[in-house]
């Protein structure tokens, strides 16, 4: 399986945006989800959100799709076993036998993963089209695909071995049928380990418009983010800009601002100046954000007047502008 196949698969996608961060918990998934929500506010824009965070896929929860877990049973079977579509349909006839086959394939693939809850094969709903499997739609123009859909229960720990993990992600990237999409937002796993970097490298090769890099204001976060930036340069992945999240907190009672995560070394602003990359904006902490994520709702609808909403909107506009300025590039037929 090559980068070529993934790139072909993504040919129907006009703009591809990677959301990255060297550090976990800085708000990548929240940002990815709301970037997708924000772009999809224009009803004529088709948006897709892809979550490849194999260790902690939180997009299903944030997008209010947690119930979808386990439903992609057959798709999972297909992905992990590499069964052809014909074979896969056959396997679907008999859950139990498929289950055994599935487990066998798992072992053959060398995944240190047990699946005790596969017996609950009652809720099988396959979202599948002729050329792959389709995203789950939260809105007419907003589709979501997550590795989280491959977990049968929210308690499942995915204990993958590195190389298999990469293989699985590549297959995942290849088998999703995106359809005609204007923006594809890709939420990546945190870290600068080989697993993470190879995913990014794969995606970078598939004509990514650029990466949005998330950070929080503290030096302990920035120090990881600098690594991520140096990696982007290494693989020649364009950087759209940096978003500083959790930047200040305005007390809902007295309206005064505090720095919960103090920018002791000047925050993202100083880092961006230093590294000569754009700062797309700062998003303040707002309890509504966490709450809407927990409820799986859009923060734009839940808290339209929050300063965080305004910050998000302005950042999304800048990302849109960046992509539009690359429009001609994006429309070019892709040469092998």
């Amino acid at each position: 399986m090559t980068v070529e196949e993934i790139r072909e698969k993504m040919e129907t996608v006009r703009h591809r945006i990677l959301v990255l961060s060297g550090k976990g918990g800085v708000g990548k998934s929240t940002f990815s989800a709301h970037l997708a929500h924000g772009l999809a506010e224009d009803g004529d824009t088709q948006v897709a959100l892809l979550d490849v965070d194999i260790c902690g896929p939180s997009i299903p929860k944030i997008m209010g799709l947690e119930g979808e877990q386990g439903m992609q049973y057959q798709a999972r079977l297909m992905i992990l076993s590499g069964l052809s579509r014909g074979q896969e349909a056959e396997a679907g006839d008999e859950i139990a036998s498929a289950n055994r086959k599935f487990t066998r394939h798992y072992h053959r693939l060398g995944c240190a993963y047990e699946d005790a809850s596969m017996q609950s094969g009652t809720h099988v709903e396959v979202h599948q089209s002729g050329s792959g499997w389709s995203p789950v739609y939260v809105d007419d123009n907003l589709g979501v695909m997550s590795v989280g859909f491959l977990l049968s229960s929210p308690d499942d720990a995915v204990i993958w071995r590195g190389p298999k993990k990469n293989g699985m992600i590549k297959q995942f990237l290849r088998d999703v049928d995106w359809g005609d999409v204007d923006y594809l937002v890709i939420d990546t796993p945190p870290g600068t380990s080989d697993e993470h970097l190879s995913v990014v490298q794969y995606l970078a090769a598939a004509h990514i418009d650029g990466a949005v890099i998330l950070t929080t204001p503290q030096e302990v976060a920035l120090q990881d983010v600098r690594k991520e930036i140096s990696f982007c340069h290494k693989v020649k992945l364009p950087i759209i800009g940096v978003v500083e999240n959790m930047s200040g907190f305005i007390c809902p009672k007295c309206k005064k601002e505090s720095q919960i995560f103090p920018p002791t070394t000047g925050g993202a602003e100083a880092m961006c100046q230093d590294l000569k990359i754009p700062l797309l904006g700062k998003v303040p902490l707002d309890p509504h954000i966490g709450k809407s994520c927990d409820k799986g709702q859009s923060f734009f609808v839940e808290a339209p007047d929050s300063p965080a909403t305004a910050a998000y909107r302005s950042i999304i506009q800048r990302i849109r502008d960046f992509c539009n300025s690359r429009q001609s590039h994006g429309e070019k037929p892709i040469s092998p």
């Binding site: 902690g56 944030i62 929210p154 994520c293």
Partner: peptide, 11 residues
């Protein structure tokens, strides 16, 4: 947050 708790349950 519930989102974080979800990940930690897996742990």
């Amino acid at each position: 947050q519930a989102v974080s708790v979800g990940d930690v349950r897996r742990e």
